[in-house]
Write a protein that binds this DNA or RNA. Structure first.
Lengths: 158, 158
DNA sequence: TGAGAATATTTCAACCTTGAAATTTTATGC
DNA sequence: GCATAAAATTTCAAGGTTGAAATATTCTCA
């Protein structure tokens, strides 16, 4: 019997373990994200997408291209443009032109932006520890390595 | 996604496991969601939020209150209003008044809406099986029960 | 009964998100 | 060198999302 037929049989057999897993995973993620959103807003007057962008830039003090940002964050180009626009308005990010290519613009955190992010990151880590307190160390590592493999595999295929 | 927090030193050893888990979980969820979004659009000309709403209504043939929907889906009331408005326009959902309480409106799938969702759900389940193919049966069940416990615990506390 | 609390929903502004089209600049092939 | 493809970004419309305020209705109880 071919592999494809085996897989199909498996699906037909009514094995909904993966579907159930996906639904529950999504739900847990939504709960945690909702909590993080509220806390970021009340404590730092910012949003999750802004946090994500600043997080990416914090790791690259020399700056990133807009296209690097959208690829890294798995969001569209137009999306990043809008978020960066607002971060620039607020003084947390600067755009600078790159010598020799006037199509691109390098964005990076300002000094204030980096300082701001450092404070948020510390709180964020504590929140995650609190919110995922249920998850034991061992489970966390197991799950984490599983998800790492998932991502590696995905990126190898795409 | 919240990725740049990895280099921060933590007082308690091993604490980063949960943060790393959260970052990877979010990334995996985003990858899968992006894929589902594309497939729902190209195959059924619909969106993930619409799919979620129809999925909830499909389980309750007698209909649901708007507030039941938003509570179940973990989204705001105003959000549900907009999505339902568009589903009604497209003929997949109807609002009906509930005898004896003119504040509430019960929403449910039309016959066409139910038929439509059934087709989508079948495809959706196959997609999930394909996308989470990496995850073994045993891991799926383990993870799934862990997430169920997480949710139960959360809801007990809130 | 009547005032005010509680409930269910909608409205709205601001922001996020995608995907397609437009713009600008650089690279390539002839 | 020039036409054209490719690359990087922005613009834009449509939809999703929140949270607060507004509306409408029902409930509570003195």
């Amino acid at each position: 019997m071919s592999e494809a037929v085996l897989e199909r049989d498996n699906a037909v057999a009514g094995n909904k373990d993966r579907l159930r897993l996906w639904i529950r995973l999504l739900r847990a993620a939504r709960i945690v994200e909702g909590e993080l959103r509220e806390r970021l807003k009340s404590n730092f007057e910012t949003t999750l997408p802004r946090f994500d962008v600043m997080s990416a830039l914090y790791r690259q003090p020399d700056g990133m291209l807009m296209s690097d940002l959208s690829r890294f964050l798995l969001v569209s180009n137009g999306n990043v443009t809008g978020i960066i626009d607002r971060l620039v308005t607020d003084g947390f990010v600067v755009r600078s032109n790159r010598e020799g290519d006037r199509r691109t613009s390098i964005v990076r955190l300002t000094e204030g932006g980096a300082k701001r992010f450092a404070a948020m990151a510390a709180a964020h880590e504590d929140w995650i520890d609190e919110l995922l307190g249920e998850v034991g160390e061992q489970d966390a590592r197991h799950l984490s390595s599983m998800l790492k493999a998932f991502r590696s595999n995905w990126e190898a295929e795409h």
